[in-house]
Amino acid sequence: MSLFKARVFVHLRPSVLDPAGEATMSATKRLGIDGVTQIRIGKSIELEIEAENKNDARSKIELMSDRLLANPVIEDWTLEFNDEHKLIKN
């Protein structure tokens, strides 16, 4: 077994309004920064998972992302794998 590290980014689908992103964008103007045309706020979920190999880890994380971490009705997700992993004894 190995321990894998990964990061799942969950973001609202482009068709879904993000009022928190729009509120943040209005604050950029108050900060004095012009030219910001879009801000969309999502979540970054860092996780570690024990698995036989990278493919096994990936398929578990994909299932988790589809069923739990993101709601496919309103959200998309992307997965970033950290290629470093460590072997676990036994």
């Binding site: 009022p19 928190a20 309103i74």
Partner: peptide
């Protein structure tokens, strides 16, 4: 809606 017994989703109020 999360459970799938009803369709759609509830999201952040437009005016926050």
């Amino acid at each position: 809606t999360e459970l799938g017994l009803l369709q759609g989703a509830l999201t952040r109020n437009k005016n926050l």
